[in-house]
Amino acid sequence: MTRVPHPRHPYLGHASPIPFAHRGGTADGLENTAAAFRRAAATGYRYFETDVHTTADGKLVAFHDPTLDRVTDSRGRIADLPWSEVGRARVAGKEPLPLFEDLLEEFPEARWNVDIKAEGALAPLVDLVRRTAAWDRVCVGSFSESRVSRAHRLAGPRLATSYGVRGVLGLRLRSLGIPAAVRVGAVCAQVPESQNGIKVVDRHFVREAHARGLQVHVWTVNDADRMAALLDLGVDGIMTDHLETLRTVLTDRGVWF
């Protein structure tokens, strides 16, 4: 098992493996709500994963889907609606959608892994991190490599970023001995254990990432045996919906923080 000896960004200044509360923990159906993040904090989590979209009037909302339809009692695309309407929606009919700025304020000790779900959210997120000086508290990711690259160019090395799909593919190819380009400047690779039936995370992948000074964070893992197997490979973080399960696995290994 290998580890990255000196994380290249203060965001990663935690003895790995890092437990991430994916969308705050979704087991109770209240994903990406302040209530979910409060529960995660009460359970002992300090690293939270969330997603951001912008409303028609430029408010940065912590929410996964482009529309309100799946998990709220309202309908419509967030990008097409003003905050006055989005703010009335209730997740599972109970909890409001939070503004990401409010989450940063309410949880001053938390560190946030933020998936930019739409192009329009990129500049507002970077502006918010700059305005609140939250450089050490936010890591930006996206499936779009170009989007996360633009975030890095806008903010510079103060902003922690992970790889998008193209960067992960390049890293995976290199781990198999196949020449491939990978973006300079990322601090971690955040990946599924497998994708479309193809293995992503194995010892070769973890070793290649660590050789480049990158941490490996795996999403979204809810089974205790899979968590244990990934930790045995040397991954540096696990994102989960099942907060108690991951806490138990890490506690049993003596690495819960």
Rank of each mutant, 00 (worst) to 15 (best):
S74N: 09
Y163S: 02
V218I: 09
L103V: 14
A35F: 12
I18A: 01
K94Q: 14
V182L: 10
V140K: 09
A133M: 08
V200F: 02
G156F: 10
V255Y: 10
V191S: 06
A229Y: 10
C188K: 11
G44D: 04
V182R: 11
P17L: 04
F20W: 07
E145T: 02
S149W: 02
T220R: 02
D127Y: 11
R111E: 05
A228H: 03
G120V: 08
R153Y: 05
W112M: 00
P108Q: 05
A27N: 01
L128E: 05
R174F: 04
D102W: 05
L233C: 08
T33F: 06
L250W: 07
A224Y: 08
A35E: 15
D115R: 03
A36E: 01
T248M: 09
D236M: 01
V191T: 09
P10N: 07
H210E: 03
F143C: 00
G167E: 11
A79K: 00
W219G: 07
R166F: 08
G170V: 03
R166H: 10
V182T: 08
D115K: 11
I198W: 15
T245I: 14
R130V: 05
T132L: 15
Q215F: 12
E105H: 08
E105K: 07
L246C: 12
R77C: 01
L125M: 01
R90Q: 14
I116D: 09
F48I: 02
A181S: 14
A151K: 09
A123R: 13
P66F: 04
R150I: 05
L60R: 05
C188L: 14
R70N: 12
T50F: 14
G185T: 05
G177R: 07
A123V: 15
G167S: 10
L30R: 10
E105T: 02
A133D: 07
V168G: 09
D51W: 06
R111C: 00
L171D: 06
D69G: 15
T248N: 13
T43M: 12
G76S: 05
G93S: 03
G25N: 08
T220M: 07
T50G: 09
V148G: 04
D225T: 11
E244T: 12
V191M: 05
L176D: 00
F48R: 04
S16T: 11
C188V: 13
E31H: 01
A41E: 05
R23S: 04
R253A: 14
R46F: 04
V249A: 08
T220L: 11
A123G: 06
Y163M: 04
H14A: 14
C139N: 04
R90D: 13
C139R: 10
R150C: 03
S144M: 03
A228T: 14
R183V: 06
A21H: 04
S16D: 07
G167I: 06
A92R: 03
H14Q: 13
L60P: 00
A35V: 13
A160Q: 13
P10T: 08
R226Y: 04
P19R: 05
P96G: 11
A229V: 09
A181T: 13
